[in-house]
């Protein structure tokens, strides 16, 4: 706890916001599905970090426990996401999302 008090909570907030925005921008501008997935992971982890930071700040261990849960869920979600990307690659020989525009009006 002593170390936490050394770094103010504002720093965590700013850092996590930067991480999160990086993720958002990555999702928006990248065409590679794998990179988009990584960007999403970045967003999740920025939130995780923020949760842990707040938990330490308010002295409430529940937040930190939640982080573990979220990591488990994120791992499962990534497994599914990757499996989908593998399947997409097998059928289209590409993981460029601009190729995936068949599902429209």
């Amino acid at each position: 706890m002593t170390t936490m008090t050394a770094i103010p909570i504002d720093y965590y907030l700013i850092f996590c916001s930067i991480l999160f925005c990086t993720g958002v921008i990555g999702v928006l501008i990248k065409r590679n599905a794998l990179v988009i997935l990584m960007s999403i992971e970045l967003m999740i982890n920025s939130i995780n970090l923020l949760l842990a930071a707040f938990a330490a700040y308010t002295n409430d261990p529940a937040g930190q426990i939640f982080v573990f849960f979220i990591m488990v869920v994120a791992a499962a979600e990534v497994a599914i996401g990757l499996a989908i990307i593998v399947l997409i690659y097998r059928t289209t020989h590409s993981i460029d999302i601009h190729v995936l525009n068949k599902l429209k009006w």
Binding site: I36, I97, H98, L100, N101, L103, W105
Partner: peptide, 11 residues
């Protein structure tokens, strides 16, 4: 016609 099929656009 909003449904372009472009995933990037949706996001």
């Amino acid at each position: 016609f909003i449904q372009t099929g472009n995933v990037g656009f949706y996001m």
